[in-house]
Amino acid sequence: MGKIVIRGVGGQVEQHAEVRRALDAGASGLEQPDAAERRRGEEVGGTVSIDMAVAVRELTDRAAITEVLHTYARLVDERDFAAVAGVFTDDCLAEYGLRETDTLHSSAAVVAWLTEQLRDGTATSHHISNVQISFSDADHAATTSYVYAWHGATGATADPVVLARYADSFKRVSTGWRIARRRMFAHGLVGFPDGILRPLSRRPAPVSGPPVTGGAGA
């Protein structure tokens, strides 16, 4: 499959119908950009050159990577900790918290850590959202995703909740995409002690002006 040239303004793809017709026609006989045009990339009022093979591969890979993130959440909530090893590379590095025992150097260590953390049978519900993926090459990707993790702790006055972000590095292996490195950053905690998770780095608040919490929020 060749390349499709889409004409637009300021990076906005405007001719969806034309692209759909081109795809349906097998992308045959489409305008082929020359080398200079490919190097220039997108310009205002210019053209966007799409390599269809790369575009299809990246769309497929994005779906596969997102599926890994969702699979992790489902397996943890099902307490199938042994199966969680399958979403990581064998030699992964996972940093879940600030304690030394929260830095894990293999998929087996991740399994052992989850088993220990939830050994009392606590029910959990992990929700993954805001997934963003960037590729450094065909076999490596960096992702960020948000996690809302509810914990139904027995005897707790309020159910603990972790509001956090996963910053992951993915690697393509023979069995598919796997997490090679994970760092977790806390957005906020409910019912957990402070200082156990790495806080998300935020820009400082403005020197003057009304506080956001006093307004309508965002």
Rank of each mutant, 00 (worst) to 15 (best):
R20S: 10
T60W: 10
F192W: 08
R203Y: 12
G152N: 08
A123S: 08
E18W: 13
V54E: 14
P199W: 05
R74V: 14
A141R: 05
R38G: 08
A82M: 08
F88V: 03
F185Y: 12
D77F: 00
Q15D: 15
E18F: 05
R181Y: 12
L75R: 02
V87N: 02
S201P: 07
I4K: 07
E100H: 11
R181V: 09
R198A: 06
L200H: 01
A64E: 04
E43W: 13
P199H: 04
L163G: 07
R165F: 07
A156H: 03
W150Y: 11
A164F: 01
R21F: 13
R21I: 07
R20P: 00
E14Y: 08
F81I: 02
A141H: 07
S145D: 02
V54L: 14
T124R: 06
V13S: 12
R39G: 11
G45F: 10
A83M: 06
V13I: 15
A167F: 12
T115R: 09
Q15C: 14
T213A: 15
G195N: 02
M184T: 10
R202A: 09
R38N: 09
H70S: 11
D24A: 13
A149W: 06
E95I: 14
Q32F: 10
Y96H: 10
E43K: 15
A73M: 02
G11N: 05
L75P: 05
L114S: 03
D34C: 04
A22F: 09
S129P: 00
V48C: 15
R178D: 05
W177F: 08
E95R: 15
T144A: 05
F81Y: 13
P206G: 04
A85K: 04
D61V: 01
R119D: 11
G188L: 09
A180G: 07
V54A: 14
P211K: 10
A180S: 12
S136T: 06
D91C: 06
G26K: 00
T157C: 08
E100C: 12
G209M: 05
S107Q: 09
T47H: 12
G97N: 06
R172D: 02
R38Q: 15
A149C: 06
E116M: 08
G45M: 07
F170I: 02
P211G: 15
R74I: 11
A167P: 00
G11I: 05
L114A: 03
A205Y: 05
D139W: 01
Q117A: 15
I50F: 10
A153G: 00
V84W: 00
H187S: 14
Q117E: 13
P199T: 01
L23H: 04
H16L: 11
E42G: 14
A27H: 08
F88Q: 05
V84C: 01
L30A: 04
S107V: 04
P210D: 13
A55V: 07
